Deep mutational scan, measured.
Amino acid sequence: MASQGTKRSYEQMETDGERQNATEIRASVGKMIDGIGRFYIQMCTELKLSDYEGRLIQNSLTIERMVLSAFDERRNKYLEEHPSAGKDPKKTGGPIYKRVDRKWMRELVLYDKEEIRRIWRQANNGDDATAGLTHMMIWHSNLNDTTYQRTRALVRTGMDPRMCSLMQGSTLPRRSGAAGAAVKGVGTMVMELIRMIKRGINDRNFWRGENGRKTRSAYERMCNILKGKFQTAAQRAMMDQVRESRNPGNAEIEDLIFLARSALILRGSVAHKSCLPACVYGPAVASGYDFEKEGYSLVGIDPFKLLQNSQVYSLIRPNENPAHKSQLVWMACNSAAFEDLRVLSFIRGTKVSPRGKLSTRGVQIASNENMDAMESSTLELRSRYWAIRTRSGGNTNQQRASAGQISVQPAFSVQRNLPFDKPTIMAAFTGNTEGRTSDMRAEIIRMMEGAKPEEMSFQGRGVFELSDERAANPIVPSFDMSNEGSYFFGDNAEEYDN
């Protein structure tokens, strides 16, 4: 993207840094990872977990959730003011799984939030270390993106479920800051804005008074975040219109849905970061690795190297396929839920299948599930090659597409044709070009129609051997075009429920 120079890199967003050079960025990201790792080690000690239990991804998720809940100030305040039966607002906890007599047992633990905050700050040299908290939120978000298709949420806001490739980060909490905003897809931002506008339509006082002023500035800020994701002048001009509207209503909703559809071809720039579970960072720190000293990046080879040398386990339900569970977590670790499966298959070195073909449910185990038949197995999170994460949407291309997802959002900077089903997408653009945004709409449609099938995206960008740390010898991959490109292809993934 041309304006790259004016933006802070995501590592800076990730670490609240002012302008830093590459070495400083690597050190501050490393410091953040160190903090998460030290916190995780301490929690495993508190909970008396064995090494194996500490490497269980379900335990990692519970521990991450506990610290996120302990620092969720708004919710904590709300819980104190609106006490609900049987919930102690000062405590947080969740299921911890232990191996007892050759069987997995679930144990519900409860801790004072104050105590968890103390352990977290102690692991982070006394700081609140917001960057580390956001990092864990993005890992949870990436896992949700890989596990669930947001059909219901899309339909509720009037969008087409086939636009799911635009929904990265749709389950990120509001408090995820600049680093969170960077990884949100165009569809996620559109959905947040539509929800806001709908509230304004239904509630006369939404934009009024002292609160209304705050609401208005939040609305304009979200519009600017979305505008910054678009790469064409016409899309940005249309966002200006939406932002400046005196009284946002149905016309703005129409414009936003139009823009979301246009992003299936004229893709937005959305950041991709490899955020790993805390149970990967903990053992690495415990083994003596100093992330701050060595430096770390979320968008280069580092996460690949770390996963190459990590042992992570997962509980497996009786009829689940461990290899499929591994694929789910591998995609989440690489922030690749909406990437082209052919690119992923090449990088991973084994075939990556669409969601609907995987015999696996989510990673988390519900409290009512029976533990008797639970097994555990090693997650295979290694890769054959590594590639640089991208934040450009890439230019655009036609490809055989599917009944489910009709476009992709690249996660890796790797040369390819970008699949999208042009006739299906263009069919949504018939007729409606009147109104105050008509010239911009016409211009956007013209650009979409001009998108050429034979153009290559990320020209000359390749993948790298894991021994090639400096990215000196790019390998331009070859793809098996007979395979499906979309992950949520004609899909039956479970729906995400809060």
Rank of each mutant, 00 (worst) to 15 (best):
G356R: 12
I365D: 04
P354G: 08
A271Y: 10
S478Y: 10
G209K: 09
A131T: 04
A22Y: 01
P474L: 02
A260F: 07
M43W: 03
G180P: 01
M238Y: 01
T390P: 12
L61M: 05
A131L: 02
T188V: 03
G93H: 08
D128W: 01
G209E: 07
D160E: 14
K98I: 05
T147Q: 12
G132W: 05
N321S: 08
D203K: 14
I301L: 15
E292R: 11
A442Y: 02
I253A: 05
Q409R: 00
K7N: 12
E24P: 04
I445T: 05
R361T: 06
M137I: 13
L466Y: 15
D72F: 10
G180F: 13
E455W: 00
A278P: 09
T6F: 00
R470T: 00
N321M: 10
A337S: 12
R261F: 07
G212W: 06
T23W: 06
R118T: 11
R446S: 13
I36M: 15
E252V: 08
S176L: 02
W330C: 08
L61G: 11
A271V: 06
L154I: 15
T232C: 11
F39H: 02
V100Y: 10
S326C: 12
S165N: 15
G37H: 04
W104C: 04
A153W: 07
L307E: 11
P453M: 08
G460C: 13
P161C: 04
S402R: 15
L266E: 08
I96E: 08
M159N: 05
R441P: 05
Q4H: 08
R8I: 00
R400F: 04
E494V: 06
A493G: 10
T147W: 08
A271N: 05
L381I: 06
S377A: 12
G200E: 12
R162S: 04
E220M: 12
R75H: 09
Y148V: 07
H272F: 05
E369D: 11
A366V: 01
G288K: 10
P161W: 01
L381A: 08
L47H: 05
K7C: 05
G30L: 01
G5W: 14
E494A: 11
R213D: 09
K273V: 05
Y487R: 07
I425V: 15
Q409W: 13
M159E: 02
E294S: 12
L172P: 06
A123N: 08
T350A: 15
F464V: 02
E64G: 14
Q122C: 12
S310P: 05
V408Q: 08
V476C: 13
L56R: 03
A70W: 04
D421W: 00
V285S: 11
K214Y: 06
T147V: 13
N492E: 03
S402A: 13
R26F: 12
Q149D: 02
T62W: 04
P354K: 06
D491V: 12
T15N: 10
I197D: 12
N211W: 11
V67F: 09
R121G: 05
I388N: 07
S377N: 14
E434R: 02
Q4D: 00
I444H: 01
K98F: 06
S486R: 02
R38N: 08
T232E: 05
I63Y: 04
Q405P: 05
R199I: 06
K452F: 14
R118A: 11
I445G: 08
Y78W: 10
S353N: 02
H135Y: 08
G356Y: 11
T134G: 04
S217H: 01
D421T: 13
D16W: 05
A286F: 04
E244W: 03
A451R: 15
N76L: 13
R267K: 15
N247G: 13
L56E: 10
D88K: 01
A336I: 04
G37N: 08
M32A: 01
F346G: 11
Q311S: 14
Y40E: 01
V109R: 06
E53W: 13
S297A: 07
P277N: 10
D290I: 03
Q308A: 08
A366F: 05
S3Q: 08
L49K: 01
R221Y: 07
T188A: 14
W139Q: 09
G5E: 00
E220W: 12
R204M: 10
K77G: 13
V312Y: 08
A336L: 15
M167E: 03
M191V: 09
F420C: 07
Y111D: 05
I119F: 05
S262E: 09
R19S: 01
S287T: 14
A401M: 00
R243M: 09
P423Y: 08
G185T: 05
Q311E: 00
L344V: 08
M481C: 06
I444M: 13
Y487F: 06
E434S: 15
R208C: 06
I406V: 14
R382H: 05
G268H: 11
T437Y: 02
K422D: 05
S69F: 04
N498V: 08
Q364N: 06
A260H: 08
M222L: 01
E449N: 15
Y296H: 06
A2I: 00
R446E: 15
F206S: 10
A237C: 14
D255M: 06
M43N: 13
S392N: 08
S335V: 03
R195D: 05
Q122M: 11
A181K: 09
H272D: 03
S467H: 13
N309D: 01
E369C: 06
Y219Q: 04
F464Y: 00
T6W: 06
G268N: 13
A428C: 15
R75Y: 12
R317K: 12
I253D: 09
L344R: 02
G490E: 06
L307I: 09
V363K: 03
L328E: 03
W386I: 08
P322C: 13
Q405W: 11
D302F: 07
P354Y: 13
P318L: 12
A129V: 13
S482T: 02
E114W: 15
M137F: 12
S314V: 12
V190W: 00
S60W: 03
W139T: 11
V285T: 09
D34Q: 12
D101C: 06
E64L: 11
K357D: 08
G450E: 00
R175E: 10
M1F: 10
R26E: 07
L226R: 07
I63E: 01
L344E: 08
S377H: 03
E115M: 10
I316L: 15
D421Q: 12
D127I: 10
I445P: 03
P322V: 10
K198L: 11
D302W: 05
R152C: 01
I138K: 10
A70V: 01
I406D: 06
K227G: 01
R152V: 02
P477K: 01
E494M: 08
L315P: 05
K184Q: 06
D145W: 06
P474Y: 02
P419E: 11
F489N: 05
I444T: 14
M456Y: 10
I475H: 02
Y219N: 08
Y496F: 15
I201A: 12
N144V: 10
S297W: 05
N309L: 12
I406M: 11
S84G: 13
Y281M: 07
Y40M: 04
N321A: 09
T215V: 11
L341T: 14
Q398W: 05
P161S: 15
N492S: 14
R261K: 15
R267Y: 01
E73R: 04
K273S: 08
Y40A: 14
T151P: 04
A493T: 15
I257R: 00
P410G: 06
T350D: 14
M222H: 06
T188N: 07
S353R: 15
S170Q: 09
L49D: 03
K227D: 08
V29G: 02
I119G: 10
Q415A: 15
R65E: 12
R65V: 10
A153K: 04
E210C: 11
S269Q: 10
A411Q: 01
M374R: 03
R213N: 13
V270L: 12
F346V: 11
K357N: 14
W330G: 08
S345W: 04
Q4F: 15
L256R: 06
G394Y: 05
A70T: 14
R152W: 06
I33A: 15
E18S: 08
S377K: 00
R267T: 00
S84C: 14
G212T: 04
N247W: 03
G177R: 05
K103P: 02
M13H: 03
Y219G: 05
